[in-house]
Design a protein around this nucleic acid. Structure first.
Length: 566
RNA sequence: GGGCGUGUGGCCUAGUGGAUAUGGCGGCAGCCUCCUAAGCUGUAGGUCAGGGGUUCGAAUCCCUUCACGCCCGCCA
């Protein structure tokens, strides 16, 4: 409803400026504590028209007509500012709209297909607390875009043939796999030991390289070995993602682009741009005139392909089946993704939008699967669940073990997702056990709790056979400050989804979720529902129902379970 | 050395041109005979890293210095 309000303000202002003789393209609108929407447009016109901002505002003020407007209640002028306030109808329409649309509130009309690639961690070990920042950003973005009408397909690009996988495949010949632990963790241990061995005896790298060459040439037995390694790890990774409520639509194997000949074709295609040079036997692309000093290596001296070359082929394939591509990548991919985009453009392939997130490190330094220095997502999820279980036990001692178990699971996963998504992607973070396990702060449980409270009221009303016929409810009775604030907050959800989707900034939805929950908790304190007089009770019950819906939509979009009790 | 990103009360963080800078944690002081206190209220705490500039107006834009993170051809 806020978007419609914004449109009305825009249209009213455009007419007013025009009839008072001022020309201004794109009238700036600001959200402000002084108004629901405000404009400071007069400042920009002052110099051009030789008038003071205050006098311009006064001129325009007289030309503002609200005849065609439903959602603007009043307009006030404060010096050079023009302030717009929402109408009574804005409140009642918001409530009625949410009631009518239910879980479809904020859903946009259907759009074309977008492919969101995220996680894509190398299958040489389990996901760690850095990888899941990628997964959570990607999955949340995918959910936001789906709500925005996009036909979203999520993809995991599986590196099943890089040097790191060759190291693991080689390691399997020399070490025994520990099958008493989860497969991805067992492989990580082999990977670490193999790297140690290769560091001590550099000669043996030739054995690894030979495996790589045999794969590239299509050697079935080696390919099968690579596949089995990758399969073992991917099973573990999938399991971890499932715990995080993340499910990819498609897993695409890097090797498929080598065997299909697409990689060969890409190299040929790039050669046609006339930018490919032979440097010490390797093929490189010169990008200096495009602002990149370092040329990009397309092919090794021994003729095998590299990650970037295979990635080019992958993107060409992807581009053909969608309108828009989004890749979620760690900060270490900044340069390589810029190079990738430039080369795609050179061969006339649509470029992806790249969402970069900064690194997650440990207090003692950066994580490394190769050195075995990392905190796995599984470990974090186990710990947080244990912690959540203690917490539920303390707060709801009389409930059954099953109840506690279920709540702990919901709260634990949500807390992890929320802690990651609430921080802007361009901040690097330091993982710290104490704060990761801290439920006292405003995090996911805070939002889930607001939802559970709403459900609890509705459940009680039901049990007491109170009026549930919202057809008779009159939203005009909802005039308390906290009721008004709550409705405004709910009306803002579609705008937030739009912003988060357009800017590819999922963290703003997380911030909104906290504010929405806060508004509900304030309403909960200020406005008794079940003990209110009949008409008011009916109206407030409807509001609670709408708040529950809005909270549920927000949580679903964040990939967080909305508990009815906790 | 170069490129990209970040720097906001003790700690974490929102805000990227508009009116008095957002929240949380921690501190202090309160609120359960009342719909779940995983909640609510109040309070203390700030040279928005430093300096310079642009602008009617700067946390936000430009220049510069410093600090931290990531990257800089045959790894991914």
């Amino acid at each position: 409803m806020f978007i419609q309000f914004e449109d009305e303000v825009k249209s009213v202002l455009e007419k007013a400026f025009e009839t008072s003789g001022f020309r201004l393209l794109n009238i700036p609108l600001e959200e402000s504590e002084h108004a629901d929407l405000a404009t400071s447009a007069a400042f920009r016109l002052a110099a051009t028209y030789g008038k003071s901002p205050v006098s311009i505002t006064r001129d325009v003020q007289n030309k503002i007509h609200l005849d065609d407007s439903n959602l603007i209640g009043r307009v006030e002028v404060a010096g050079p500012y023009i302030n717009f306030f929402v109408s009574e109808k804005y409140f009642s329409r918001t409530v009625e709209k949410i009631k009518a649309e239910g879980m479809d509130f904020g859903r946009m009309p259907a759009r074309k297909k977008v492919i969101v690639e995220h996680t894509s961690a190398n299958p040489n070990g389990p996901l760690h607390v850095g990888h899941i920042r990628n997964s959570i950003i990607g999955d949340t973005l995918a959910r936001i875009l789906a709500r925005s009408g996009w036909n979203v397909e999520t993809q995991y690009y599986v590196n099943d043939m890089g040097r790191q996988i060759a190291v693991v495949a080689w390691a399997l010949e020399h070490f025994e796999l520990d099958d008493s632990v989860k497969s991805d963790h067992a492989i990580a241990d082999l990977y670490r030991r193999a790297n140690q061995l290769l560091e001590d005896d550099k000669e043996r790298w030739s054995e690894v390289n030979e495996l790589l060459q045999r794969v590239e040439k299509g050697d079935e037995t080696v390919i099968k070995r690579f596949y089995s390694v990758v399969g073992l790890v991917m099973d573990g990774i999938r399991e971890t993602l499932k715990r995080l409520n993340i499910d990819h639509d498609r897993f695409v194997n890097e090797s498929s682009f080598v065997t299909s000949g697409d990689v060969f074709n890409i190299v040929e295609g790039v050669k046609e741009t006339g930018r490919v040079e032979v440097d010490d036997g390797a093929l490189v692309v010169d990008l200096k005139d495009l602002g990149i000093e370092k040329s990009l290596v397309l092919q090794r001296r021994d003729g095998t392909s590299l990650y970037t070359t295979r990635d080019l082929a992958y993107h060409k394939w992807k581009a053909e089946q969608c309108e828009w591509m989004i890749n979620v990548l760690g900060a270490d991919h900044k340069l390589i993704s810029t190079q990738l985009r430039l080369v795609l453009d050179l061969i006339s392939v649509k470029q992806p939008d790249v969402v970069i997130f900064e690194f997650v490190s440990l207090p003692e330094g950066s994580m490394s699967t190769r050195r075995g220095v990392f905190i796995s997502a599984d470990e974090l999820l186990d710990e947080i669940k244990k912690h959540a279980l203690e917490e539920v036990g303390r707060r709801r001692p009389d409930e059954s073990a099953k109840f506690k178990e279920e709540v702990a699971e919901m709260v634990g996963t949500a807390a992890v997702r929320y802690d990651v998504i609430k921080v802007s992607a361009d901040k690097s973070t330091v993982f710290d056990w104490r704060s990761a396990l801290d439920f006292e702060k405003q995090g996911a449980p805070f939002i889930q709790y607001a939802h559970a409270r709403a459900c609890s009221i509705l459940r009680k009303a039901e049990a007491e056979k109170q009026e549930h016929d919202f057809e008779l409810a009159d939203p005009a009775l909802l005039t308390n400050k906290s009721e008004r604030e709550l409705i405004k907050k709910m009306a803002y959800l579609p705008k937030i989804l739009q912003k988060a989707g357009n800017d590819l900034k999922p963290h703003i939805l997380a911030v909104y979720a906290r504010e929405l929950a806060e508004s509900f908790n304030q309403f909960y304190r200020d406005s008794p529902v079940l003990h209110a007089e009949e008409d008011l009770r009916r109206a407030r019950l409807m509001l609670v129902d709408c708040a529950r819906t809005t909270l549920a939509i927000t949580m679903e979009t964040l990939g967080i379970v909305a508990p009815e009790e906790m």
